[in-house]
C-alpha cells in the first residue's frame, strides 16, 4: 500500500478554468461510470432543449377518440386517459423538472457553500450556533419542510425554486465546512493571513479553489436529490401543475390505469429513472476523479 498506484487517477491541474474543467471531464470519461453517466445526462439535456422542435403532437391536445390507446404507428407509446400522446409528453416531461432543479441546485450550492466556507474559517461561537441550527433543520423530514411552504404559498416555480434551494442548501453548509476544515490549518492559509489578506479574500482566493472538488460532488448529489424531491412532489400533486407534461405527474395519473394501459407509466418511469441514475453515476465518477470520499455522506 506504500507503493504509488500508477493506475489511480490524479486530480487534474491546469492553467485556465476551462482547461481544468476539460481535464476533469476527460478523466471522468475514462471511468466506466463516468462516460455512461455523462452520456445519459447529456442525452437528457439535449432532449429537453430540442424536444419542442421534435415532438409529433401538441402535449396538451386531447383526443376523445384515442383514450388510453395502445401503442401504434401514430402513437408509438400509446395515449393517456385524456387521449394525449404519451411519447410527446414523455419527451417534454423533464423540462419543468430540469428548469426547477437547474436553477435550484446552483443556488443551493452557492449559498450553502459560501456560508459553509465562512463558518469553517471563522469558527468559534458563530460556528457552534450555526451548526446547531443546521442540525435542527436536518432533523425535520424533508417532505414536511417542503410541503408546508408549498401548500401555503402555492405550487408555482416562484415558490418551488427558492424553497428547494433553501432547504437543499442546508446540508451543503456541512459539506463545505468539513472541506474547509481540511485546508484551513495549512500553511498557505497562514501565509495569506500573514500577508494581511482579509476574510473575503482568503475565502474566495484560497479556500474556494480547494473545496471545489467536494462541492462539485455534493452538487451532483444534491441535483439528483432535488430532482427526486421535485418529482415526488409532482407525484403527490404538489409539484408541476397539470396540464404541464411532467414525469412525476404522468406516473401518478398513469398508475390509476396501469392494469389496462401499462404503457402510460413505462415511458415516464424509464425517463425519470435513467436521468437520476445518470446523475448519480456522474457524481460517483466525479468523486473518483476529484478524490472525494462521499460514500459516508448522509441522507437529506
Amino acid at each position: 500500500m506504500t507503493a504509488p498506484d500508477a493506475s489511480a487517477p490524479v486530480p487534474p491541474r491546469g492553467n485556465s478554468r476551462a482547461r481544468r474543467a476539460w481535464l476533469v471531464v476527460r478523466a471522468m470519461l475514462r471511468e466506466p461510470a463516468g462516460w455512461f453517466g455523462l452520456s445519459l445526462v447529456a442525452a437528457h439535456l439535449l432532449l429537453a432543449i430540442f424536444a419542442p422542435l421534435l415532438v409529433p403532437y401538441n402535449a396538451t391536445a386531447m383526443d376523445a377518440g384515442a383514450i388510453l390507446g395502445e401503442p401504434s404507428m401514430a402513437h408509438p407509446l400509446g395515449t393517456d386517459h385524456l387521449g394525449r400522446d404519451i411519447l410527446t409528453r414523455t419527451m417534454l416531461g423533464g423540462r419543468e423538472a430540469l428548469i426547477v432543479t437547474g436553477i435550484g441546485t446552483p443556488a443551493a450550492l452557492v449559498w450553502g457553500g459560501l456560508l459553509g466556507i465562512f463558518t469553517g474559517l471563522v469558527g468559534g461561537r458563530f460556528d457552534e450556533v450555526l451548526m446547531r441550527i443546521v442540525d435542527a433543520f436536518l432533523s425535520l423530514p424533508w417532505i414536511l419542510k417542503l410541503l408546508v411552504l408549498v401548500v401555503t404559498f402555492g405550487t408555482t416555480n416562484a415558490v418551488l425554486i427558492p424553497t428547494l434551494a433553501f432547504f437543499f442548501g442546508i446540508p451543503v453548509i456541512r459539506v463545505a465546512r468539513a472541506a474547509t476544515h481540511e485546508v484551513v490549518a495549512r500553511d498557505f492559509i497562514q501565509a495569506a493571513r500573514a500577508r494581511g489578506h482579509g476574510r473575503a479574500s482568503i475565502m474566495m482566493r484560497e479556500l474556494l479553489p480547494n473545496v471545489t472538488g467536494p462541492l462539485m460532488v455534493e452538487g451532483a448529489m444534491r441535483w439528483s436529490w432535488m430532482l427526486l424531491a421535485f418529482s415526488s412532489l409532482s407525484f403527490l400533486g404538489f409539484g408541476a401543475t397539470p396540464p404541464t407534461p411532467d414525469w412525476g405527474l404522468m406516473i401518478s395519473d398513469g398508475r390509476l390505469y396501469m392494469t389496462v394501459a401499462l404503457w402510460g407509466v413505462l415511458g415516464p418511469m424509464v425517463a425519470l429513472a435513467s436521468l437520476i441514475i445518470g446523475i448519480n453515476l456522474v457524481a460517483d465518477a466525479l468523486a473518483i476523479v476529484m478524490r472525494v470520499d462521499h460514500s459516508r455522506r448522509d441522507e437529506i
Partner: peptide
C-alpha cells in the same frame, strides 16, 4: 446498488 438507490420510490413501488 446504484440502480436501487436512485430509482424514485414511486417508480419502484409501481413496478
Amino acid at each position: 446498488a446504484i440502480v436501487s438507490m436512485t430509482i424514485p420510490e414511486f417508480v419502484s413501488a409501481t413496478v
